[in-house]
């Protein structure tokens, strides 16, 4: 019993320390990234563009395939059921909820975490162990501005843009399948979806995409910059980062649906 309590207590303290450290890290990155004049220098701008390429553009192909397949499946099934129940007028709100509110941020988030979070952890971890971050400090270049901020900003931008892209392609993919099954026009489907998008849908979408993009980059970077210089540290860091991101991801998805 004592051992169990001891373990639970240790875990709570560890999680508390992690959130405290991570929050302070996020505050530092955000404040330095927004208010420092060096954040707008050509070097940092180029770093942001490069990171958007790695985190976003390189995911376009896989995102397109996933969106088409999922879109065809989801829209196909939903519309088929709705037509069978003679509830075709409800196609707008249901597609908005399923694709734009839930599936878009969820699938984009999973892809960003699989692709970007893992890469960032190894990237920043290797930079630290190869003393490249030390090299920046020697040049008086703040790693928070030149290394961490561009990666987090790029992750947020990529997440928002990829989610919008995913939703659009999924609807087009779904419509392609739908056009073979019935005489529904693309105009009809789009007008049904657009007319039912409410402020709460936009708010939920923005809340989820921005926060998921932020944590997908900030958690692995925070863990990597605190890592010891050893190879086992990288494996341990990867485990902690993935667990941390997974739980935060679930919390954001739930919060997005419950409070907005």
């Amino acid at each position: 019993m004592y051992k169990l309590l001891y373990r639970i207590g240790s875990l709570v303290i560890a999680v508390g320390n992690f959130f405290k450290g991570h929050s302070l890290f996020c505050l530092q990155v955000s404040s330095k990234g927004i208010f420092s004049r060096y954040s707008y220098s050509p070097a940092v701008q180029m770093a942001v563009l490069k990171q958007i390429y790695y985190a976003g553009i390189e995911l376009i192909v896989i995102m397109t395939i996933t969106a088409l397949i999922l879109g065809m499946t989801l829209v196909g099934i939903i519309t088929k059921v709705l037509f069978a129940l003679d509830a075709a007028p409800n196609i707008g709100p249901i597609l908005t909820t399923v694709i734009i509110r839930i599936t878009g941020p969820l699938v984009s988030g999973i892809l960003i975490i699989l692709r970007t979070s893992t890469t960032l952890l190894v990237d920043v971890g290797m930079m630290k162990s190869n003393r490249e971050i030390k090299a920046l400090e020697v040049m008086n270049i703040d790693p928070y501005i030149y290394i961490y901020f561009p990666r987090i900003a790029a992750s947020v931008v990529s997440m928002v843009v990829l989610s919008i892209y995913f939703s659009t392609v999924a609807i087009i993919g779904g419509y392609t399948l739908l056009s073979f099954q019935s005489n529904t026009s693309l105009d009809y489907v789009l007008s049904q979806i657009v007319s039912t998008i409410a402020f709460s849908d936009v708010a939920t979408f923005t809340f989820k995409t921005v926060l998921i993009g932020f944590i997908a980059a900030s958690i692995p970077i925070y863990i990597a910059q605190n890592m010891q210089n050893s190879r086992t540290a990288l494996i341990q860091g990867m485990t902690s980062a993935m667990i941390g991101i997974f739980f935060t991801f679930i919390i954001i998805i739930i919060l997005g649906e419950v409070f907005i």
Partner: peptide
């Protein structure tokens, strides 16, 4: 033990302080 940045090209490494400051 103060290395060049592996992800940047040679010219980017050299001119990084100029572009940044």
């Amino acid at each position: 033990n103060i290395p060049l940045l592996a992800t940047l090209s040679i010219f980017e490494n050299i001119t990084l302080p100029l572009q940044y400051f």
